[in-house]
Computed example of a mutant assay.
Amino acid sequence: MNLRLVNIVFLLLFFGCSSVSPQSDSKVNDGLIVRTGTSFGMCVGYCRNDYEIKQTAVTLTRNDIRKSLTQTCQTTISETDWAAIKAATNFSEFSKQPERLGCPDCADGGAEYIELQLNDQSHRVTFEYNATIPGFESLVDLLRKQRNAYKECK
């Protein structure tokens, strides 16, 4: 009887210590970096704007290709905005999107892109300016809101 009790205690300790708790979504997306931007081929001035969002840090890089000028500056977004962006991402579904949608920057219509990087994997989708990515409309809208709030370096 004592041996049976010892075995039961041993098994409870062994299995109790080896259980793995599932990771929360926030832990899974901790390695998430979101890049987004716009470009216009027939344009004068800073015609290419690239944003990189890592948690609440935002880096804007503006390029004037004709004059070979580059501006880079940084700002922050709220935890709430970052949480909304993370919630709108689904890396595995986003990776199934084609790399190009429509005819970006045809007839100087402009182009937008969104790139998601999760740890060492990334996927970029370029699409027509003011269009959207099917199934990712909320992500497109959230990122446009961020770009519109932070259009230039000060």
Results as ranks from 00 to 15, higher is better:
2 N>Q: 11
2 N>L: 14
5 L>N: 10
9 V>H: 02
10 F>N: 01
10 F>V: 02
11 L>H: 04
15 F>L: 13
16 G>D: 09
16 G>T: 13
21 S>V: 13
22 P>A: 15
26 S>N: 07
30 D>I: 00
30 D>A: 13
30 D>H: 14
31 G>Q: 11
31 G>Y: 15
35 R>K: 10
36 T>Y: 12
36 T>M: 09
36 T>L: 03
36 T>K: 04
39 S>Y: 12
41 G>L: 06
43 C>I: 09
48 R>P: 00
49 N>W: 05
49 N>D: 04
50 D>R: 02
51 Y>C: 05
52 E>S: 06
54 K>A: 07
56 T>D: 08
57 A>S: 15
59 T>H: 00
63 N>F: 14
65 I>F: 08
65 I>H: 06
69 L>A: 03
72 T>D: 03
72 T>M: 02
72 T>S: 09
74 Q>H: 10
75 T>H: 01
75 T>G: 02
76 T>D: 09
80 T>W: 11
80 T>E: 13
81 D>S: 10
85 I>W: 07
87 A>V: 00
88 A>H: 02
93 E>I: 01
93 E>K: 09
97 Q>M: 14
97 Q>K: 12
100 R>H: 07
104 P>D: 15
107 A>M: 12
108 D>M: 06
108 D>V: 04
108 D>W: 08
109 G>D: 09
110 G>Y: 12
112 E>T: 02
114 I>P: 05
117 Q>S: 08
118 L>D: 02
119 N>W: 15
120 D>C: 01
121 Q>I: 03
122 S>A: 05
122 S>L: 02
123 H>D: 06
124 R>P: 05
128 E>I: 02
130 N>Y: 12
133 I>Q: 04
137 E>S: 10
137 E>A: 11
139 L>E: 04
139 L>A: 05
143 L>R: 06
143 L>D: 01
146 Q>W: 05
147 R>W: 10
148 N>P: 08
150 Y>A: 02
150 Y>N: 10
150 Y>S: 04
